[in-house]
Amino acid sequence: MGEILTMALAAVLINNVVLSKFLGVCPFLGVSKNSKSAVGMGLAVIFVIFGASLITYFLYYQVLVKMHIEYMQLITFILVIAAFVQFVEMFIKKYSASLYKNLGIYLPLITTNCVVLYVAQDNITQGYNLIETMTNAIAVPLGFMLVLYLFSCIRERLDSADTPESFKGNPIALVVAGLMALAFSGLTGIV
């Protein structure tokens, strides 16, 4: 149990996907204009990563390995993720209008979100078992959501700040991201 907890903590704070692995920077800059959409995006990502990780995990060990076609890994994973996102979107559209209102717009963004593919690949390359895969699939997107939320809070104030003309918009946001990465690197010692 302790090991799992350590692993989760490391994935959320120390090896944070956005700040130390540079994954998901596009939505990080794009959807972080206000904290409400940051939370919506974060929740959608957690859900999709968890589902997609489980499916790819079983597909890899039960189908690809048994049929000796491991080289199809990348194609399988991206197709599974894309199909899964479509399925989830269809499901929410049909059965829950309120959920669709809050998460629906972020779902099409997720197919091209590199975090999803990264987690699916990482589970295999690290040789995780089922429990570790599940932990990884929750902890990594949780880290993404945490950083997205913090960043959106900073950004809401950044709009009224007096930044140099050429740094307005994305450049200053990247400077802030750099400072956040510096702050997060201070947490390295806790695990």
Partner: peptide, 19 residues
Amino acid sequence: NHKTPKPEGCENLRSSCEG
């Protein structure tokens, strides 16, 4: 998925993504 109609009140949802 693209044939499934969007639920009422959600036809014109847009997130303000500029990333």
